[in-house]
Design a protein around this nucleic acid. Structure first.
Lengths: 155, 155
DNA sequence: CCTGAAACGTCGACGGG
DNA sequence: CCCGTCGACGTTTCAGG
């Protein structure tokens, strides 16, 4: 699966403003609105684009506690089971298996520290979880939806 | 800053489909399209909503290496300087200061392992960076744009 | 908050490079 | 194959109630 430079520019523009009209995008990249739509539709079909979403300020919406939690497990839980189990906890916003000592690394968003403790308890009760290690997020320095693919020369 | 239950539902819908029309949203929550637009505009004004974006499958677009990098620094670099420095590296998709031994935790998206090594070198050359510790992501289990705020009763 | 009407955007069908 | 133009339809947006 390979991307046209025009596709990359379109994705870049949609990354900065997911609701920009096809006509405006076309004007910026030198295509007509239908041509842009056809490309976006194709990108959706092939799965390169998986959807559109709103970006919210989590902290302002009351999710004040942000943390990474490493999971140390007994044995090797099936990745499928692990995914299902942690996916059931709504405060888990991301989870992945990783190299290193821990078996999985979770990103948690909780209302406050008290709420976070409850989530941690919930995770510790999964029978294959031996222990957890928490790293609290203090301040956010950078947050991008995706890597910047312009070929460096900005600034 | 407090949110109406209607605002929460609207944000929830936009989270699942950031391009859904105000008319359809209005139909789902029991408002007219202009009423929905006014709410979304207000949420944008107050900063609760910071924008709209496209969701892409990074792996399919050629960003095959995903890793967490802990930064250990000499002294306490100013958070502002750190943010500026790591923000200049396009492969850094997120960065935050954290509790624990490390001073900062970065999320990196690189084209491949070779590309990742280059990024790591770039980070190591910042003069206040003493050492780094990499954790490679193996497989993604969960990935949500934000915590699920439905009050648990699903499944 | 809703309703209406004008401006705007979307999206299929069609023809040309 | 991918592009552009056109026209019908849906949506946004602002006025007024």
């Amino acid at each position: 699966m390979t991307l046209d430079p025009l596709d990359e520019r379109i994705i870049g523009i949609l990354g900065r403003d997911g609701r920009r009209s096809y006509a405006r995008i076309g004007h910026e990249v030198g295509l007509s609105a239908p041509a842009v739509k056809r490309r976006v539709d194709r990108l959706l079909d092939t799965g390169a684009i998986t959807g559109f979403t709103v970006v919210v300020d989590e902290t302002r919406l009351g999710w004040q506690t942000d943390a990474y939690v490493e999971l140390y497990c007994t044995g090797q839980p099936q990745p499928g089971q692990l995914a299902r189990d942690v996916g059931r906890v709504p405060e888990v916003v991301s989870a992945c298996t990783v190299t290193g000592d821990a078996d999985a690394l979770l990103r948690i968003r909780a209302r406050d520290v008290r709420d976070f403790e409850r989530v941690l308890d919930e995770l510790a009760q999964l029978d294959y979880v031996a222990r957890t290690k928490t790293t609290l997020v203090l301040s956010h320095l950078v947050d991008r939806p995706r890597p910047d693919s312009r070929k460096n020369g900005s600034r």
